[in-house]
């Protein structure tokens, strides 16, 4: 079984970090995993997106045709990619800055006001981690422990305070999604 998640937003929103942290967590759980960023000419404020494919078998194609999960951090991301999601899939929406809602009826959507929540915690840059909390809770691909440990590993020896903010942001997103 292979699960694919597609993350999209503006450059600078930490979209690639969302994918990398999930990919690391999946690896640490012992899953096969491939992370594929969309790349282009370097440009600040451009679009950023990436795919993470995870599974208990070899990942054949890293290309995300029909991802099971779409995580959108910006309005253009939602309009561009909502049609990619597989029927029955889930769309995670950063509802702080995205007003539109998916037009499709065959997918589930989850609205998380990540930017507002991160601001309440005192650091809007943790918006992406709030979303990851929600994603981890809903998708159940990896446990919160594995995710947070992986996140800390890849953040390396950067500021301790940042790790603390990330933990709080993750918890906020995680708790926001009800079982």
């Amino acid at each position: 079984m292979i699960i694919k998640a597609f993350f999209s937003g503006f450059g600078g929103q930490g979209v690639l970090m969302m994918g990398i942290s999930l990919a690391n967590a999946a690896m640490n759980k012992g899953l096969h995993v491939t992370y594929l960023p969309a790349y282009g000419a370097e440009m600040r404020g451009g679009t950023a997106n990436c795919t993470v494919a995870m599974g208990d078998e070899e990942i054949a194609s890293p290309v995300a045709s029909e991802p099971d999960y779409l995580i959108v951090m910006s309005s253009p991301a939602l309009s561009s990619f909502q049609n990619k999601v597989t029927s029955g899939g889930t769309i995670f929406i950063n509802s702080s800055i995205i007003e539109a809602r998916p037009l499709r009826q065959d997918v589930q959507s989850l609205c998380i006001p990540c930017t507002d929540m991160a601001q309440e915690l005192g650091n809007s840059r943790a918006t992406n981690i709030v979303m990851m909390g929600a994603f981890v809770k809903k998708s159940r691909i990896v446990t919160p422990d594995i995710y947070l440990k992986s996140l800390e590993t890849i953040m390396g020896s950067r500021k301790k305070s940042l790790a603390e903010i990330n933990r709080k942001a993750f918890a906020a997103g995680f708790d926001y999604v009800k079982d």
Partner: peptide, 10 residues
């Protein structure tokens, strides 16, 4: 190719 260069795998 570009995909092999950019993608991350364990």
């Amino acid at each position: 190719d570009g995909m092999m260069g950019q993608m991350m795998e364990p």
